[in-house]
Amino acid sequence: MSNDQSQSEKAYGRLHRRLFEGKAAIFAIATTVAISVGGVVEIIPMFSTSSLSWERAGWVTPYAPLEVAGRDIYIREGCYLCHSQMVRPMRAEMLRYGEWTRAAEYQYDRPFLLGSRRLGPDLQRVGQKYPDAWHYEHMRDPRATSPGSVMPTYPWLHRDKIDPADVTASMAALAKLGTPYTTTEEGAVTARLRSDGQMIVDNLAQAGITAAWDDEIVALIAYLQRLGVEGRQHLATQGGGQ
């Protein structure tokens, strides 16, 4: 480096040195301010009164107990690592999956499950696309329903049981966060789990499959079969658009 350059470096650096480099506390505070601005500007507006409506709509209902249980299984197995839940507003995506996903459709999603990778197809509108028995078989042997699939098998979902007390705890926590559940009492939750599960069990029985209302696979099917359905129905009546 030439002498001129190092002179200018010294002059330039003097201010920075006097302001910050000798004083760790001031440096730390300045850094904290610098790293806070972006987050404040981008995140805080999402909570303002006028903004809250952007992801709220009356045509979306909270997850039923069995769907909560199924969603927890979806999270436990890391399904979101290969399947996204976000149909983008692009022609090819809408041809493949259906209407693009509106913000309100996620309003009861805690946590969000948009995913970051599509090793398998997007699932945001998979609800009612296949019969219950298809999903049952798909989790048992993905290649039976989708030849060439690289998905693992999930035989334990057909063996293991959901725990109504555990689901109740999840419902209570979600209610605490503002999800409008009318009851989070264990007896009522269990009754609802049983009746919703029985409907899927009956569907499976028509395909010659024996299952029980508290099988994990039944809960997962309940969750998958509701994905994107309310949005699809609402948007169909609206003729698309916002």
Partner: peptide, 16 residues
């Protein structure tokens, strides 16, 4: 919700 499970205070796209 339990010792092993919790739900974020943010929902949907805000959570994202």
């Amino acid at each position: 919700a339990t010792w092993f499970r919790s739900y974020p205070v943010y929902s949907g796209l805000t959570d994202a």
